[in-house]
Design a binder for these strands. Structure first.
Lengths: 248, 248
DNA sequence: GCAAAAGTGTTAACTGTACACCCATGA
DNA sequence: TCATGGGTGTACAGTTAACACTTTTGC
């Protein structure tokens, strides 16, 4: 990779990241707020993203965006796909905003979307990160977004739901030690419906992806919950194979 | 969309299509052969693809490539994702070939891959199509390909396998009328292992995505097989919901 | 009548689902 | 002692998986 002062931006291709987080209560997504456009209150938010450099891969660009924004590395990150809306300047605020930050605001841009899963508890925002005024929004509150970002967000959310059915990716949203209730809550938040507590626990234990620790919650005003951690070994295996599904 | 003589190619973005076909015996993929490079026998093949125009979406570009090559429209087509290999000119033959067809052969290109499923029996190649010398290759024989096309092909094949587990997409590879044995053979070809005949049939029938027709094979030297067609209604439903899997 | 592929049923093991009560803790 | 959420078992229904023989046709 060349040094920064030699790097050339590719003005036709960007990456955008849909970053999901879970605060043990709600599923959230990290959005940034534009500096210039003050109108249209619900269209001010957009997904964090950037044009790519010509000497970096798409994955590298996504990792860079994530690091610049959250300071985090080694995050679960997966490409969602490419989006090519032809009408991205149909909203006047988008046009104004682009003119304020891009040299060629009218150039057609293809964006490659990524979705990322981060553990909100290991996320300690430094003020510098938030100079761009990023914030976690509950996914229910995400209505309209800039450009085609709402479409991308919806696609990411759907992918997260679908993927959870066959791969144990949800653990990326939790701290290293967690309770089964937290895991349960997370799954309910993602799939958007209630799941039977006993059956859920049974299933997780039978899949052998959680390992019971000799440690319990302290200071809670109810029976303390046992902590668990992943069974990394089995987790890797399941990541490859997926869970049993259609049955071939 | 503008007329052809006004259209501007985007020299930084291409689409490549992994087109699968099934001849009722084997799973095949449509590859094109380069005109110039005669050396390195097993690296001559590449995936059909093209640079995109700036006034078309990625999906439109993929549809265009497919139509130009096969003459077919209304084909099952799905985006696989974006690929951004930085070392695409590492093979000398690739470099020579690009220099012969591109104005800016050294420009960095991001490619968006698609995978397509076509019914080989409805595919009647006209000589014009084959001016580009496309040919169906059994997937086992696909070893090395130009650029990063082998990686893309592998990814498409894996996606096809994975998707078959949860969605009845295989039907796109068969003619309107087919026998359960053909369907069975197709599934075995895609997942790459034997499937129990009785269990397979039972499952397909129970899922209610096939409808028995009052028509049998004729002229076969064994008990003639019954023809079936899809149950389009149920098919659409299953496409949306996927099959039952992790169980939430 | 023979070769070739079509078509068909049963059983046992496992998996999913529905459902209600007692437990440990802090206040 | 009460409020809170943690933790557990059982029975029924449905699904998967393994397995072998008879049928229909052309030659």
């Amino acid at each position: 990779m060349k040094h920064n002062n030699q790097r050339k931006l590719n003005t036709g291709i960007s990456v955008d990241c849909v970053i999901f987080g879970f605060d043990l209560e709600e599923l959230k997504v990290l959005l940034i707020q534009r500096k210039t456009a003050q109108k249209a209150p619900d269209s001010r938010f957009s997904l964090p993203g950037d044009l790519i450099y010509n000497d970096e891969t798409l994955d590298e660009a996504a990792i860079r965006v994530l690091k610049e924004l959250t300071g985090l590395e080694n995050i679960y990150l997966e490409q969602l796909g490419a989006f090519s809306a032809l009408d991205r300047l149909s909203k006047i605020e988008d046009k104004i905003w682009l003119e304020s930050i891009r040299e060629q605001p009218n150039e057609r841009v293809i964006t490659i979307a990524y979705f990322a899963l981060v553990n909100l508890n290991s996320f300690h925002p430094s003020p510098a990160n938030f100079a761009t005024s990023a914030s976690w929004r509950p996914i229910q509150n995400v209505t309209s977004l800039a450009f085609d970002h709402h479409e991308i967000f919806e696609s990411a959310h759907q992918q997260l739901k679908a993927k959870l059915q066959t791969q144990p990716i949800g653990f990326n949203l939790l701290p290293d030690k967690f309770t089964l209730s937290q895991l349960h809550k997370l799954y309910e938040a993602i799939v958007g419906k209630e799941l039977d507590k006993r059956n859920f626990r049974r299933k997780m234990i039978k899949l052998d992806i959680v390992k019971k620790l000799e440690e319990k919650q302290v200071g809670v005003p109810h029976k303390p919950s046992n902590f668990y951690e992943f069974n990394q070994k089995n987790y890797q295996k399941l990541l490859k194979e997926g869970f049993d599904n259609f049955g071939f």
